[in-house]
Every structure is written in structure tokens, then in C-alpha cells.
Design a protein around this nucleic acid. Structure first.
Length: 995
RNA sequence: GCCGAGGUGGCGGAAUGGCAGACGCGAAGGUCUCAAAAACCUUUGUCCAUUUAGGACGUGUGGGUUCAACUCCCUCCCUCGGCACCA
């Protein structure tokens, strides 16, 4: 780490040390020191300079009325330690804080308390700020931002306009101005634009202004389209997902309905591939990257059209090789074809089902696997590969937002389809061969002639016999032989079947039916029904087979095996099946390859007051974006913050806000939706680089210096959405030339949650189990709280707040205080030189451990290393030289500075050293002084630890092995047996293998 | 349901293929004290042995890879985070 001179603070105001008490009484000096640091601007960040920079950022919080708990401090303390550590290492550090002030909690609080949300936020933020000061967090408050101020949201609106005026050109693979598209359309239509609906230049020119705008909406990065919302018919408002409990409104308990309204979206899906690819360039926890990748959910497959009475029904499938096994289709309940195709006699049932399904959340719809629901709509589609009629169902396990909202169900090879088909008695036809060769047969007692068991034994075909029935697992090599035997032994009027690697029903010699294809399925079922009354209730062959527990693992699989029962494609090997079928679909015009994403466009519209107004005006000629120079579109004051009965935001009732006249005299209505708060948080980290700029969102020079964020820290609950949206905005602004980096957060770390003291509950005011930093600071002081927050557990792991441990940390700090404040011990009569050397060795080992662990977020072991060093110093007192002791004491004090900044500063002042300890240089680690001169090598025999040998560090392999073989307990355990193998892992271990 | 994380002494946790339990809490015994508190010292995974030496077992469950597994692979169980309008 390069060491540059730290910035020099302003001339010191008088003060410090603030206490002369010998005992550790943190309450006597902590608040005074914080006031002095603030007065001196000790933590004020300077503008861009030639020093290396470190931008260390905490997720900015919504300042809740409840204030901070000790749980919240879990991330603020460690990032503060990290910031202080970087400052001491000569970095120019940006460590700011601000408020995510818009959104539902503030609005709901305002409605409840009948106060302006801005006032509430100001009050709550002031409390947070006070608490941050209490625990010594070194934010530069001159850079404080608040997302709900016009100074800030003006630029959120500015980004909206940039996205609105851009489109994603798939040929350049980046966003470009929408004007480029308009001129291309005027010149040559959509001819060269991949994936576009055909439109000629002439057709474009013939469109009027409004129609052109509607066409361009298909391309803009910010656009409007109809989408579903939760609607409470009693409150007459749109309600958030969080406000829906078991399908009911959390306020009034009314059943929530779904409504469609036109909503604004950002086209994040255009960036899907880049959002995945660029994950490689950043240092984030692997599991977070994986979650983002899965959230984007790229899958390759095909879209295929199934003909229906209402026209082609387009489905998306990742398994086009299973098309021949499609035995029904499933539409999302909200799919437009449901209404179009439902037959008159099914209508009431289908409508009831759809209404019910629309109430559920997505998680509810896909949950509870045993309880698949759905309804037949009475209509059929035609499978394009074989002309087979396929019944169409509506079921809530299919989502409108994924693929085309319609699937072909292949129950033999899709788990959800399998469960659904079993429940509703739909045929299940295998069309892909198993890759493991598992074949089974259950010979029910009385169906086979006497001697069958002996015949199987003679052929070495394994089986189990229970209550007269045979459970046979047929090895692949014996399959043909089994078929012969079964024909020979099956009784007249009975049958034997084989499932798994083969699907065969054996009714007698030469009387075999292959289970494959719809016709055979029906015929087999009829014959079985005729022969055996017990199976007459079974609606399909598979249902009949599924009644046999023994068969369960052989009936279903989702592997990529060779195709079977698929006409001319039968026999196509598994690794080629998908690509060959896709090629054939494209060639015959039945379908085509398609890449699909789980990721959906980002909906930003909120029918709420407390958010950034969307800067758009609606006119008879279509929507018009507000001109950049007319920003911000300010939130007007309103009487009531509650949404209107029409579902619009309260803004819709403010005539002065809504009605506008454009410069050319055209009357217009302002958009009254506001943006969800993820918009505000998608760029705030850029604003911190230049937070008070009134002319631009930020000075490009400052952003070029400070961004990207070097270390970004917050809860894992934001793993996907906030982080994905921020990455998207960064890439869009990069494409449009405003910034020069493609990823906003170079290093990301997530803190684990601190749970309530009594177990597994979260801390929450309603449960009354919140521990506040205020009460802990009052009792133990801020430094003890800081150290304990670090010590409590691994940074990323959730853990309960255990107050017992706090006392131990406090005792350690007090011990360190006594040690550092005590007068220099008198020189020992004889200086123990090895002890002297040992203390300095421990010091350098501690410097390394503490430095490495702070930098890599292992804060709990930072504290344990400092505890060990404190203990080592106490043990060494009076035994080592005064010079050595003082050197080690000073090292401890410097290392304590980022962790317990108040105490370190107080001791520093008492020692008369120049203010401030927080501007001192960090320590240098000396590998030679840290090196051991002896090593203890454990010796294992056959994996069990038997002895240890002590040797000088430079000992050769031969010397170590020799010593190991001569160790007392090793000799005893070998008992004269020669070692077969002796492994030496240098410096670590000797492992002996002996018979 | 889908995606992700986790499960180690009485408790928080350490150890990322190489001595399981660092560090801290708690507990037991001791020193000091008229006494208590504080502080300090000793012990502290379980079991067997105990005079010493030692030995067996042990990181949610069951299996596997390896000279060596808390660590890597597979099965199952349990807990937690997210699932697109809470942020």
C-alpha cells in the first residue's frame, strides 16, 4: 500500500485529553472527542487529488422513525474501521452517507401522523446522524444527500429522460439516442433491425405523430405498457405486494383483486447478457453473482406455434426435443387466449378459476407442489409436429411474465407437468430414453405361471419376493431375455409390464404392446381395464403404473437422452436432439430458436405521492418528455397523501400540477405516477462524488476520480434487485457517454443479520426486542460497542445479539487502557532476550494479521488478534527491555485507533503526542522479525495424530522425517512395523502410512 | 415451489485439504478480603484410564474421494435470506 502524507487537519481547537481519571470511563471523553473531530473537519474528504483514492460506501438507508439498532451497526462499524485504516495508509477516502427518503414507509408514516413526509424524514435522519456520531462513524457529512429533495431528484428525472430518449441497438450492442432510430426508420424502415416487426420507410412516414410515438415505445429504454397491479376494492387503491397478506388487504382485510393500468418500465432486459457477462469483472461474493445470473435466467430453446380456433398459440420451450410428448397445453390464467378459447359450457368454471388465481402472489402460485390447480378450458390446439389434438388448460403454475405465458406440457419429462397430469388424469407419454438404463418390472402375485422366480434366478436377474409378488430390477444386458421369459410365464388373462429403459406391456406370447404414442396408450389402458377390475379407476397408463410404489424412480426423468416415440426423430441421440429439432422447426416454419430470460423489464410506476415525479406530459398527440431545462418537476404540496379512489396518485387531484400548456400552446396533463425508490438508489453513489452540483448530476472529473465504488457494503436482502438495477443504470449511462466505467461496485460485501438476543427472531419494534446503540453506549461506551460489533461473529454470518460477550470485550478494552496508560515498567534486573525477541515477533505477526484481516473483512479475528497481543504485552511486562516493551505498546495503540477511536485518541493526548492519532501512519510489517525459528511438526500414523516433533525452521525433509520416525509415541505405535510411506508437507505435517 | 446461504463444546465463534475447538462468554476450583464485588491464577469437547503414560469418540444425517476431510463430491433432514410495488 503506498504511503502518502495524510491530509493535515485545520488548526486544532483546544481540548483533550478530556479526562484525567485513571480508570477507564469512556463517558468522560467520547462525546467530547467526536465534537472536536467534527469541529476540525477531521473526516472531510478533499476533492480529487493525486493520492490513491478509496471509495467506501454503505448502502444508504431509509431513516426509520425507530432509529438505529445494534443490528444496523453491524455494517456501519466495520466500514468505518476500513475507512480509518485506509486513511492511515495514505489514501484519499470517500466515506459518505445519505438518505433513501422516498417510498412507502415514509408515506405511510406521513398518512398516519398527518404530517409532511419531508418533515418526518428530516427528523428521523437527524436522529440517525446523532446515533452515527455516538458510535464514532467518520462520515464526511458535508456530502450528505437526500433522495427526496428537488436538488437530488431533479437528476433522477434527468436520467429518466436519458433513458426515455435512448434505445438499445442490437447491432451495436449498446444504447444510442432514439433520434438515430427515427432517422433510420425514415430512411429504410425496420429492414435491418433484428427482431423488429416489419415496417417500411413509407409506412413510417405515413404514421402521424402519435402513432410514431407508440411505435417508438417498443424501443425506448423508458416506456409505458399495461401491467397488472394489486387493487383493494374497499380502499380503492393500488397496494404493494407487501401490503397483501394471504390475498387480503392488510388494512381492511378485503380480498385483493388484480387490475391492469398503464405503467412505466425501464428496458433492463436489453442488458440481460451484459449484466451476466460483466459479473466476471467484479469482486463480489460468488453466491450473489450466482443469484444475479439465475435472476437474469437466460435459457435457450425454441418458440413453436400451436394452431387453435383463435389463431396460432405461441409457446416457449427449452426442450423442443420433447414436442412429441406434449399431451396438453397450459396457459397462464391471465393469458388472452383463455378468454378467446374457453367454450361456453366451461366458461363459468374457468372464470372463477382465473379470478381466484389472480389474487395469488407469484410465490404462492408456484408453491405447495402437492396442490397443483388448473382448469380445462374446453378447447384444443394442434401439435404442429404430429397433428395431434392437445387439450388446453389454464393453470396458475404458468406465469404470464415468463416466455409467452403458454407452455406445451410434456408430463413425462417435466416435473411440474408430471404432477399436474397425474392429478388431472392427463396422458403421460415418454419420448426421451433414460440415460441410466434403469428397467423394472413388478410381477403381481398370480399373474405369472409357477416357476417364474426360478427362471429369473437361473438367468441371474435380481428380484425381491414379497407376499407372492416379484419386484424385478432388470439389468440392461438381460432385458431381451426377460421379455422372452415374461412371454413364456405370463398367465392368460393377466399381463406383465416393463417400465423405465423400455416401456412394454406383455399380454402373452407374441402379444406385446409398446407404451409410446397416444393410440397405444389408449389401447393398453382398455385392455388392462378389461382384464383387471382393480385398475379400472385409473385414467391413464401412467397413473396405473404410478400406483406401484416400486416404480416411482423409473417412471419420470428430465434428462437429455435419446429421442423415442418421436416419428422420424426417434433414435436421435440426446446431445444432438435439441439442435436437430430446432433446425427442423425453423426449416419447416413450425417454430424457431429463441433465447428467453426470466428477467423482466423493471416497472417503476407507483400510484403514490412520495416519489420522484415522472417527467412526462400527456397530450392528445401522445406523450411529451419534459425538457431538460424545465427540470425538476417538483412535487407540489398536497392536502392528503392518500391515493385517489381511481387508483391514481394524489398528484392527480392537484389541478395546478396536472394541467400544463406546452410552449406551442398544446394543452397537456402531467404524468401523475411517481418512480419507485429503486430509481433513486440506482445512481446515488455517483452523486456522492459531487453532491451539491446544481448544473449537472455530477462533475465528470470528480466521478472519474472517485468511481467506481471500491467497497460497497450492505445486507444480502438487496442481493438482486437494487444491485442489478444500479448495474443497469451504470451501463446505460456508460453507453450514452456520461461515465467511463461499466460496473458501479468493484467489491461488494454483505453483512449478516444480528438477531434478537433471545434466539432466532429479527429485532423489531413490534416484538419489543430491539437493542439500541444508545443504551449500549451509555453502559459500556462506544468503543466497546464497536469492538463487540466486530467480534461477535464472522461479518457475513447471521448471529444473535449476545449481551454476555459484550462484557468480555469491554474488559479487554479496559485491560488495554490500563496497560497503555500505566507508567513505563522499571527495567528488569536481567533482560530475558528470547522474551524480548518473542514480543517483537508477536508484534509483527499481529501487524500482519490485523492489516490483512481488516482489508479482507475478517473483523472478528482482528479483535481476537488484538486481544492476544494485549495478553502477550501483559505477560511480557517486567520481563523484557523497556525499549522493546514501549515499541510494542505503541504498536498496539496505533492498531487500536481504527477500532476504538475514542480511547486511542484520549490515550494519545494523555501521552502528549501531536493531535490526531487518526492522522498517523499505519505500521509496517517486517517478515524477518515475524519469522519463527522453531517449528512444531505434528506426526500422524494412518491418519491419527500420534506425536509432535520440534525442529529448527530450516530443517530438511530428511531431518524432519527422521525425527518423526524416532518420536516416542510413533515408535510405540509402529511397534517395529516398517512404514510403507512417509509424507512430509513442509512446515505442516508428517503423515506415516503403515500396515 | 424456484434461487441463494448456513448447521462445529453449555453459548458466540476459530480453523478452506494438513494438530478441530484460536479468541471471548459461561462454569468449577483457588489467591486477595471481615465479607462481597472487582482483579488475578488454574481447569474446562465427551467418554475410558488416571499413579504416570495414554486411548476411544467427536464439526446436522448417511455414504464417497484422500496418506489426511469442518473443509471436496453425492443423499437426506433442519434453519435463515430473496422471489420483481418494503427497501
Amino acid at each position: 500500500m503506498p504511503a502518502a502524507e495524510p491530509a493535515v487537519a485545520k488548526p486544532s481547537v483546544p481540548g483533550g485529553p478530556f479526562s484525567q481519571t485513571a480508570k477507564y470511563v469512556p463517558q468522560e471523553f467520547e462525546a467530547q472527542w467526536f465534537a472536536k473531530w467534527q469541529a476540525d473537519d477531521l473526516y472531510k474528504t478533499t476533492p480529487a487529488d493525486e493520492r490513491p483514492k478509496a471509495y467506501i460506501l454503505d448502502f444508504y438507508p431509509y431513516p426509520s422513525g425507530d432509529g438505529l439498532s445494534v443490528g444496523h451497526c453491524r455494517n456501519y462499524v466495520p466500514t468505518d474501521v476500513l475507512s480509518r485504516y485506509y486513511r492511515m495508509n495514505g489514501y484519499n477516502v470517500l466515506h459518505p452517507m445519505g438518505w433513501d427518503a422516498f417510498g412507502l414507509p415514509a408515506e405511510n408514516a406521513a398518512i398516519k401522523m398527518k404530517t409532511n413526509p419531508a418533515k418526518l424524514i428530516a427528523q428521523y435522519a437527524a436522529n440517525y446522524k446523532r446515533q452515527f456520531g455516538l458510535i464514532g462513524i467518520s462520515y464526511d457529512w458535508s456530502r450528505e444527500i437526500n433522495s427526496s429533495t428537488p436538488e437530488y431528484y431533479r437528476w433522477t428525472q434527468w436520467v429518466f429522460l436519458k433513458l426515455y430518449n435512448a434505445w438499445y441497438d442490437p447491432r451495436l450492442n449498446r444504447a444510442v439516442p432514439i433520434a438515430n432510430l427515427e432517422s433510420e426508420l425514415a430512411r429504410q424502415g425496420t429492414r435491418d433491425i433484428p427482431g423488429s416487426d416489419p415496417l417500411s420507410a413509407e409506412q413510417w412516414q405515413a404514421l402521424d405523430g402519435k402513432a410514431r410515438k407508440e411505435f417508438l415505445a417498443n424501443y425506448r429504454l423508458a416506456y409505458r405498457k399495461p401491467a397488472w397491479l394489486n387493487w383493494c376494492p374497499s380502499c380503492k387503491t393500488v397496494i404493494a405486494n407487501e401490503e397483501v397478506r394471504d390475498g387480503e388487504c392488510w388494512r381492511c382485510g378485503t380480498l385483493v383483486e388484480k387490475r391492469t393500468m398503464s405503467q412505466w418500465f425501464f428496458r433492463i432486459t436489453a442488458y440481460a447478457d451484459r449484466l451476466v457477462a460483466d459479473l466476471q469483472t467484479i469482486d463480489w461474493p460468488e453466491h450473489i453473482k450466482l443469484m444475479q445470473k439465475n435472476w437474469v435466467g437466460r435459457s435457450e430453446g425454441a418458440e413453436v406455434d400451436f394452431a387453435t380456433a383463435a389463431g396460432d398459440l405461441r409457446i416457449f420451450t427449452t426442450r423442443p426435443d420433447t414436442l412429441w410428448g406434449a399431451t396438453f397445453m397450459v396457459l397462464a390464467p391471465e393469458h388472452p387466449f383463455v378468454a378467446k378459447l374457453t367454450t361456453a359450457e366451461r366458461k363459468s368454471e374457468v372464470e372463477a378459476y382465473v379470478k381466484d388465481a389472480m389474487r395469488k402472489t407469484e410465490a404462492d402460485r408456484t408453491a405447495v407442489e402437492k396442490d397443483k390447480t388448473g382448469v380445462f378450458i374446453g378447447a384444443y390446439a394442434t401439435n404442429p409436429v404430429n397433428g395431434a389434438p392437445v387439450p388446453i388448460w389454464a393453470a396458475d403454475y404458468v406465469m404470464m411474465g415468463y416466455g409467452t405465458g403458454a407452455i406445451m406440457a410434456v408430463p413425462a419429462h417435466d416435473e411440474r407437468d408430471f404432477a399436474f397430469a397425474l392429478k388431472f388424469g392427463l396422458p403421460i407419454l415418454p419420448v426421451i430414453a433414460r440415460t441410466d438404463g434403469l428397467a423394472k418390472s413388478f410381477a403381481l402375485g398370480g399373474t405369472m405361471h409357477f416357476g417364474f422366480a426360478d427362471a429369473l434366478r437361473a438367468e441371474a436377474i435380481p428380484f425381491e419376493e414379497k407376499q407372492g409378488s416379484l419386484y424385478v430390477t432388470i439389468p440392461p444386458t438381460k432385458l431381451e431375455r426377460y421379455i422372452e421369459l415374461a412371454q413364456e410365464y405370463v398367465r392368460q388373462g393377466a399381463w406383465n409390464e416393463i417400465v423405465g429403459a423400455r416401456w412394454l406391456f406383455i399380454f402373452g406370447r407374441g402379444d406385446l404392446e409398446t407404451f409410446g404414442g397416444a393410440e397405444n396408450e389408449k389401447r393398453i389402458l382398455m385392455r388392462c381395464h378389461a382384464l383387471e377390475p382393480n385398475v379400472r379407476g385409473k385414467r391413464t397408463v401412467m397413473e396405473m403404473l404410478h400406483a406401484v410404489e416400486f416404480y416411482h424412480d423409473a417412471l419420470f426423468h428430465a434428462e437429455h437422452g435419446a429421442m423415442i416415440n418421436s416419428n422420424e426423430f426417434s433414435g436421435t441421440p440426446g446431445d444432438a436432439a435439441v439442435s436437430q429439432v430446432v433446425a427442423w422447426l425453423a426449416q419447416t416454419g413450425k417454430g424457431k430458436a429463441r433465447v428467453n430470460y426470466k428477467l423482466r423489464d423493471w416497472g417503476i410506476s407507483r400510484q403514490r405521492y412520495w416519489g420522484t415525479p415522472i417527467p412526462v406530459i400527456h397530450t392528445a398527440q401522445g406523450e411529451v418528455p419534459v425538457a431538460e431545462q424545465d427540470l425538476p418537476v417538483k412535487l407540489p404540496d398536497v392536502e392528503s397523501y392518500e391515493p385517489t379512489a381511481t387508483g391514481e396518485s394524489p398528484l392527480a387531484t392537484i389541478e395546478k400540477f396536472v394541467n400544463v400548456t406546452l410552449p406551442d400552446g398544446t394543452p397537456g396533463r402531467r404524468e401523475t405516477d411517481t418512480m419507485g425508490t429503486f430509481a433513486c438508489s440506482s445512481w446515488y453513489y455517483m452523486r456522492f462524488a459531487d453532491p451539491h452540483n446544481a448544473r449537472q448530476p455530477f462533475d465528470p472529473k470528480e466521478v472519474a476520480y472517485w468511481l467506481p465504488v471500491d467497497t460497497y457494503v450492505g445486507g444480502a436482502e438487496h442481493a438482486v434487485m437494487h444491485l442489478l438495477y444500479s448495474r443497469f443504470w451504470t451501463k446505460a449511462l456508460y453507453d450514452l457517454g456520461y461515465i467511463s466505467f461499466i460496473e458501479p461496485f468493484t467489491r461488494l460485501r454483505n453483512q449478516g443479520m444480528i438477531l434478537a438476543p433471545d434466539g432466532k427472531e429479527k429485532m423489531s419494534k413490534s416484538k419489543g426486542n430491539v437493542v439500541t446503540p444508545d443504551e449500549v453506549v451509555a453502559q459500556y461506551g462506544a468503543d466497546a460497542l464497536r469492538a463487540y460489533e466486530m467480534f461477535i461473529s464472522d461479518f457475513e454470518q447471521a448471529t444473535p445479539w449476545n449481551t454476555n460477550g459484550l462484557g468480555g470485550t469491554y474488559r479487554w478494552i479496559r485491560k488495554a487502557w490500563d496497560l497503555l496508560n500505566s507508567p513505563a515498567p522499571s527495567a528488569p534486573t536481567t533482560v530475558d532476550e528470547p522474551a524480548d525477541r518473542e514480543l517483537i515477533r508477536k508484534m509483527h505477526k499481529t501487524i500482519k494479521k490485523v492489516s490483512d484481516d481488516i482489508a479482507s473483512f475478517r473483523f472478528n479475528t482482528v479483535i481476537s488478534a488484538l486481544m492476544e497481543f494485549t495478553n502477550a504485552l501483559n505477560d511480557a511486562a517486567g520481563k523484557v527491555s523497556i525499549a522493546g516493551f514501549e515499541q510494542a505498546r505503541d504498536a498496539l495503540l496505533i492498531m487500536l485507533a481504527p477500532v476504538v477511536p475514542f480511547m486511542a485518541e484520549e490515550i494519545w493526548a494523555r501521552k502528549g503526542r501531536p493531535y490526531s492519532i487518526h492522522q498517523q501512519k499505519w505500521l509496517t510489517y517486517d517478515a524477518q522479525l515475524a519469522a519463527d525459528d522453531v517449528m512444531v511438526v505434528p506426526v500422524m500414523i494412518n491418519g491419527k495424530l500420534r506425536d509432535r516433533v520440534e525442529l529448527p525452521v530450516g530443517a530438511s525433509e530428511a531431518q524432519v522425517k527422521d525425527a518423526a520416525l524416532q518420536a516416542d509415541n510413533v515408535v510405540r505405535h509402529l511397534a517395529g512395523k516398517p512404514p510403507l510411506k512417509v509424507i512430509y508437507v513442509p512446515g505442516k505435517m508428517v503423515s506415516i502410512v503403515a500396515k
